[in-house]
Nucleic acid binder design. Structure first.
Lengths: 218, 218
DNA sequence: CCCAAACGTGAGGCACCCCTCCGGTTCGCT
DNA sequence: AGCGAACCGGAGGGGTGCCTCACGTTTGGG
C-alpha cells in the first residue's frame, strides 16, 4: 500500500536501490546538519544525481518523512510505554527521558520535534498526536498530585525547545549534559516545591504560532 | 581614542554620517534576524553601498560590536546591580531577570550571548567577564544557602541557551512567556528540597567547546 | 580655490542552494 | 531480442550571500 492508501506497482529494481541509498544518506545528513541540510549534498552523498532525488522525493518533507519514519515510530512507542507504567510520576519521567534521549540522538529529529510544518497533513497529525501524549502523561501525574497543578502542556513544549537548543550546543562535547538538565527540570515540576508562577501559560494559539514560527526561515 | 587606544583623526563628516547610518541599520537587522543577518541588506537599509560597509567594518564582528556596545554596557550594569542587592537570593533573581529580559528584547543580542566567537579578543574578554559575574552571583546565593549547592555555572549558561531558544520561538506570539520559564527555573534552583542530580556538571572545557560550537556554521 | 587624501560605488568573481527539464539510459515484460 | 515505460543525469536558470577592487566623487586643510 502506498503512503496514501493507493496501490502502486513496486519500483524498478535500480530505482528502489537508489531510493534506499538516498534515504540512508538523508538520515546521515539530517542527523548531522538538521532538517535544513543541503539536498544537493544528500544526493552527492548517495552517489545519485539531484534530479533523481527530486524524482523520488518531490519536496523536502517527503524525504524527511522517509528518513524519520523509524525514529518517529520509536518515539511514539516510548510515549505509549510511559502511559503503561503504573506510577504516574515514573511514567512522566519516562516520557521525558525518552523524549530527551531521542532529541540527543539525532539533530534532525531534534529539529523536527521543535518545529511545525504546516504545509503537510501528516506532520500535523503527528504533532497533534504528540500533544495528546503530552497531555495524557501530564494530566495523569497531576491528578495523582505528583506534578504541580499549574504546569501546562505549553511548558512541556517549551522544555522541548530548551532541551533542543542545549543539545545543539553540547552534543559533541558533553553528550550526556541533557540528563542533568532533565533532572533539574524535574525539581521544577514536582508538586511539593511549587511556588506560584507570575505569568499565565501560553494559549493553544500562541503555542501553535510559536511552533510554526520556528519552522519559517528568517 | 580609537578602540584599541590608537589616536586617529576624526572621520570626515560624510563618512561619519554614513557610519552612523550603518550602525543604526545593523542594530535593526541584527535585532530582527540575529547575528547572521545579511550584510548586503544592512547596507541597503542604510542607503549605502556594500563597499562602504566593508570600509568601515572589515569584519562582521566589527559591526556587531559597534551595534551592541550600548546593550552590552546596559547588560553589564544590570549584573553589577544584582551584586549590589543585599539579599543574595534577590540578587540572583535580579541577575536572571535582567538577563532574560535583555535576551527577549533583541534577537541579535540573544544570539550574541549564546555564542562565543573565538577569533576576537574583545568578545573573549566580555564572555570571561560574564562568566565571572555569573560565578559571583551564584556563589553568593549558594553561600547563603538559598540556591542549591550542586548548581554549577554551566547550568546557568545552559539556562541562557534554553531561554534563547524559547524566545526565538515565542517572541512574536507570546512575548512574556520567558517570565514563566524563569519562575519555573527558579523553583528548580531553590535550595530547599533539592533532589540529587545524577549527571555531573560540565567541565569548563566542555562549556567552552559548546559555546564555540554554537557559533560555527553547520 | 585647489588638490591630495579620504571616501564611496557597484559590478563582478566565487560559492552555495533550490528546482526543472530534456536527452539519453536501463529495466523487465512480452 | 526488442521495445516502451520508467528512470537517471546534469546542465542551467534563478536566487542569495560574501567580499574585493578599480575607478569616480567628496571633503577640508593649506
Amino acid at each position: 500500500m502506498g503512503a496514501n492508501g493507493v496501490e502502486r506497482r513496486p519500483l524498478r529494481r535500480d530505482a528502489q536501490e537508489r531510493r534506499d541509498r538516498l534515504v540512508e544518506a538523508a538520515r546521515r545528513e539530517f542527523a548531522r546538519h538538521g532538517v535544513d541540510a543541503s539536498l544537493e549534498k544528500i544526493a552527492r552523498e548517495a552517489g545519485v544525481s539531484i534530479g533523481t532525488l527530486y524524482r523520488h522525493f518531490p519536496t523536502r518533507m517527503d524525504l524527511l518523512m522517509a528518513a524519520f519514519r523509524p525514529r518517529l515510530d520509536e518515539f511514539m512507542a516510548g510515549a505509549a510505554e510511559a502511559l503503561a507504567i503504573e506510577d504516574p510520576w515514573d511514567g512522566f519521567v519516562h516520557y521525558l527521558e525518552n523524549l530527551f534521549a531521542m532529541q540527543a540522538g539525532d539533530r534532525g529529529f531534534n529539529d523536527f520535534l521543535s518545529r511545525r510544518f504546516t504545509d503537510n497533513a501528516e506532520t500535523e497529525r503527528i504533532h497533534d498526536q504528540m500533544c495528546r501524549h503530552i497531555g495524557d502523561v501530564l494530566a495523569r501525574a497531576q491528578d495523582a498530585g505528583r506534578v504541580r497543578a499549574d504546569l501546562s502542556q505549553g511548558d512541556i513544549v517549551n522544555l522541548i525547545w530548551s532541551n533542543g537548543r542545549m543539545i545543539d550546543a553540547t552534543s559533541t562535547t558533553a553528550p550526556n549534559a541533557w540528563r542533568r538538565h532533565l533532572h533539574l527540570m524535574l525539581d521544577a515540576y514536582r508538586a511539593e516545591r511549587a511556588h506560584p508562577i507570575p505569568e499565565p501559560p501560553m494559549t493553544d494559539q500562541q503555542l501553535y504560532d510559536a511552533m510554526v514560527h520556528l519552522s519559517q526561515v528568517d
